[in-house]
Computed example of a mutant assay.
Amino acid sequence: MNKNIIIAGVGGQGILAIASIIDLAAINLGLHVKQAEVHGMSQRGGAVESHLRISSEEIFSDLIPLGKADLILSIEPMESLRYLPFLSPEGVIVTATEPYINIPQYPDEEKLMATIEESATHVPVEAGTLARKAGSPKTFNVVMLGAASPYIGIEEEELEKAISLFFGRKGEEMVNMNIKAFRLGKEQATEQNPERGCENSPYTTK
């Protein structure tokens, strides 16, 4: 099992939280994990990326080579295009559709999504709508994690365990809200591409 994941967005969108949850799930399964330091400006509104590598074998570099990413998980649509050179020919982009407009002359949203559609296999996610449905706009990033879960290579239940661990200190209500957000994201992704489910994700503690 080898998965190379780039998580992209802007500061304040919870990119490190996504990476930490995936890390917890992978480590719990005895997998090897390497995560690069965040690149770019991590203050709120600055571009952020994280390279996350998961494998059943030893990993020798924490940076993903060009053309080798299995997944670009983008919390902001324009940021997904920044990392296209890293995406493998079989790779997938999972991106939020709602922009974070932090620059002048931000691209036209319709044209932006059309460019993403033309660039690679992709799953667009209405993460803001689903986060509000889950109970809080702050679950935006966990909605995106759920949408990306069919492509991560780790069973849904293992990721949910990691969510419970990550948010456990904040109480049961926070855990349940984020589990709901995760499931809503997963549901939307599965509806769009039902052939790419967790049957391709063999790692579980069962």
Rank of each mutant, 00 (worst) to 15 (best):
S136N: 14
A147I: 09
L159Y: 07
Q35C: 08
F86Y: 15
K180P: 02
T190R: 12
S74I: 08
L71S: 04
V94H: 06
E117C: 00
G46A: 10
L84Y: 08
A25V: 06
E173V: 04
I6G: 05
K180F: 03
Q35A: 12
F140D: 01
N200A: 09
L31N: 09
Y106R: 03
S201Y: 03
G14K: 11
V123Q: 00
V33M: 04
N4D: 15
Y151V: 05
F167D: 06
P99V: 00
A96Q: 01
C198G: 02
K68H: 15
G185D: 04
L84F: 11
N193R: 14
V94K: 07
I64D: 11
V123W: 00
R82C: 11
T204M: 08
L63S: 12
Q192R: 12
Q43W: 05
L66E: 15
K161E: 09
L31S: 10
E76W: 11
Y100Q: 15
V92T: 13
V143L: 14
R82N: 14
L66T: 13
F182C: 02
K161R: 11
Y151P: 10
T205F: 06
E172A: 05
E156Q: 14
K180N: 15
N102R: 13
G40R: 10
I179N: 07
E117R: 11
L73I: 09
R132Q: 13
M113E: 00
D108R: 05
S55D: 15
A148W: 06
G46H: 09
R53Q: 12
G45S: 08
S164V: 02
E156N: 15
E98C: 00
E160M: 15
L66A: 12
A17N: 12
S164H: 05
I64P: 13
I22T: 07
Y106I: 06
S119R: 09
V33T: 11
F86I: 03
G135K: 06
G14D: 10
G11V: 07
L73Y: 07
P150H: 06
E57P: 01
I179G: 10
N176K: 14
D108Q: 04
K34S: 13
I72D: 04
L29V: 04
E90G: 02
K68S: 14
L71N: 01
Q188F: 00
V92G: 04
P107R: 10
R183I: 01
E76G: 11
P194A: 15
K206C: 04
G197L: 09
E58T: 14
E49I: 07
Y106T: 03
K3R: 15
G197F: 02
A120C: 03
V10L: 13
S56C: 07
P150I: 06
G11Q: 05
R169E: 13
G40Y: 12
A8Y: 08
F86Q: 11
S80M: 08
I54V: 06
I6K: 11
Y100W: 10
P202Q: 05
